[in-house]
Simulated assay, not measured.
Amino acid sequence: MTILLVLLIIASAGAVAFALVRGLHAFANMRPTELDKDGIPQSLAMQNKMMFARVKWQAITVMLVVVLLLVAGAQ
């Protein structure tokens, strides 16, 4: 069980890093002239999407760490 939790933590931490890099890439390539149908820059929409994805994966990672600590403490 512990090994499975550690692997899940590693995978979710990787997803955090992936979302962070994609968000930074969108920030670095921001072009205010490329607007979507609502008048919002496309790169800004991608930055927001990646920010929420990063926060989601961080929360999942923290929950997995808590579960790992509870399982390890019970043994």
Rank of each mutant, 00 (worst) to 15 (best):
I40C: 07
A72C: 03
T61I: 01
L5M: 13
I9F: 08
A19F: 02
F27M: 05
K37C: 00
K49Q: 08
N48T: 06
L5C: 08
M1D: 06
L5I: 11
V67H: 00
I9Q: 04
D36W: 12
A19G: 03
D38L: 08
L24G: 14
G14V: 11
L7Y: 11
T2Y: 15
A11P: 05
I60P: 00
I60H: 01
G14W: 06
A59F: 14
L44G: 02
G39F: 12
A17E: 14
V55K: 15
L24Y: 09
I3V: 15
Q58P: 04
T61V: 01
L20W: 12
R22T: 03
L20C: 08
A13T: 10
G14Q: 09
R54Y: 05
W57G: 00
Q42R: 13
V65N: 00
W57T: 03
L68Y: 06
I60R: 02
L44T: 03
V55N: 15
A26V: 00
F27R: 02
V66G: 04
L7G: 08
R31G: 11
A19C: 07
V65T: 07
A13M: 10
A17W: 13
A13G: 13
L70I: 13
T33S: 15
Q75L: 05
V16N: 00
L68D: 02
L70D: 13
L8Y: 11
M51W: 12
I3Y: 15
N48Y: 11
V55W: 13
S12E: 14
A13K: 06
L68G: 06
R22A: 05
E34T: 09
V65W: 05
F52G: 07
I40Y: 10
L4C: 15
V16S: 01
L5Y: 11
T61N: 10
H25D: 15
Q58G: 07
N48F: 11
T61F: 01
V21L: 05
M30L: 15
V16Y: 02
M50N: 04
V67P: 02
N48D: 07
L64E: 00
